[in-house]
Write a protein that binds this DNA or RNA. Structure first.
Lengths: 149, 149
DNA sequence: TTAAGTGCAAAATCTTTGCAAATGT
DNA sequence: ACATTTGCAAAGATTTTGCACTTAA
C-alpha cells in the first residue's frame, strides 16, 4: 500500500485525524492527479468500485477538513479540487480564479493569480472573492486552432 | 420603469412570444420586486399555489429567453434574478458582481459595477467573467452594528 | 478491542417527462 | 379552434439516513 507519493497522502490524512483507508487514498490520488476540479459524477464513474454513498461522505469529510474544496461550475455541478496549502478547517481561502472551459468542461483552479482590487458599493463589506471565467482553455484552444483555422 | 408593473411584464412576455399567464406574471412580479436573486425553494414557498413543475418550466423558459438569469450561490443553489437590459436569447451578459451575504443569504446582483481587467495565464481565452463576493450586505451590516457595537 | 469507516437498503429530495384538462390568442 | 401552458402522476436522478459488517489503529 505504500509507494513513494502515497506517503504524502497518508500524512495528509493523518494530519487531519482521518484513517488511511483505501477509498480515501484513491480519492486523493484521483484528485491530485488532475490539475482541474473534478465533478462528483466523474469521480463516481472512475471509481466504480467505491460505493456512491462512501464517496459522498469522503468528499464531505475532506471538505470540512479543508483538504479539498468545492467549486460549482456553470451548470451548478459541484467540482472538487485539492486545496492549495493555505486552507484551514472550515475556512477556505479559494480567492482564486476558476476557469470553466466551454469545450472540455474542465474547471481549472488558477490559484496563483492575483485578483485585482475590487471596489464595492457603499455598505458592502466583502470577506471573500471568487472569480469565474468561461472560455477556451489552452488545450482546447490548440486543438480547435488545428482543426478549424 | 417601476409604476405600471403589469404592463411592462406583459410587454416583456409578448416580446418573447410567451403567453401572458397568471403564473408567469406572478413570477415576474416576485422577481422584480426583489433587488436580489431568489432561490427556487424560496420562490416555491412564496408561490405555493403554483405547481412546482410549472415553476421549473417557467424559470427555464425565462432563462432561455434571456428574461432572467441564474446564479449559483455558495451552496450551489440556483438563484434567479431579472436580467438587466442587455441580455439576449441564450447569450447572457452577466459579467457583473454577485454578492452573497453570509448573514441574510441574499444574492445581490451588482450589475453596474465595472470589473477590472483580468490577465489570465498564457493560452486561456476568456469569454465571460463573473465575480462572486461573500460578506455582509449593507442591511445586515447596519443591524449587526446596532446589535453588537 | 473498538471506534471509525464502509457498503447496502431504503427514505427523502430534487428534477424531468408524459399526458389530459385548462387557458390565452 | 388551435397551440401553449398548466397541473397532476409517475419516472429518474440525486442526496441523506440507518444499521450491520468490516477495518485501521
Amino acid at each position: 500500500m505504500a509507494h513513494t507519493h502515497d506517503h504524502s497522502f497518508e500524512a495528509l490524512l493523518e494530519k487531519h485525524h482521518l484513517k488511511k483507508t483505501g477509498p480515501r487514498l484513491k480519492v486523493l490520488s484521483m484528485l491530485s492527479a488532475k490539475n482541474v476540479a473534478t465533478s462528483q459524477p466523474d469521480l463516481e464513474s472512475v471509481m466504480d468500485d467505491i460505493d456512491r454513498v462512501t464517496l459522498y461522505r469522503i468528499l464531505n469529510a475532506f471538505e470540512e477538513k479543508g483538504i479539498i474544496h468545492k467549486v460549482f461550475d456553470l451548470n451548478g455541478t459541484a467540482n472538487y479540487a485539492m486545496c492549495s496549502s493555505n486552507c484551514e478547517e472550515n475556512q477556505h481561502h479559494d480567492e482564486h480564479l476558476h476557469f470553466n472551459c466551454t469545450m472540455c468542461k474542465n474547471v481549472y483552479c488558477l490559484d496563483d493569480l492575483d485578483l485585482p482590487a475590487i471596489t464595492l458599493p457603499e455598505g458592502f463589506k466583502p470577506e471573500g472573492f471568487t472569480l469565474y471565467a468561461t472560455g477556451v482553455c489552452p488545450k482546447c484552444g490548440k486543438t480547435a486552432a488545428k482543426k478549424i483555422d
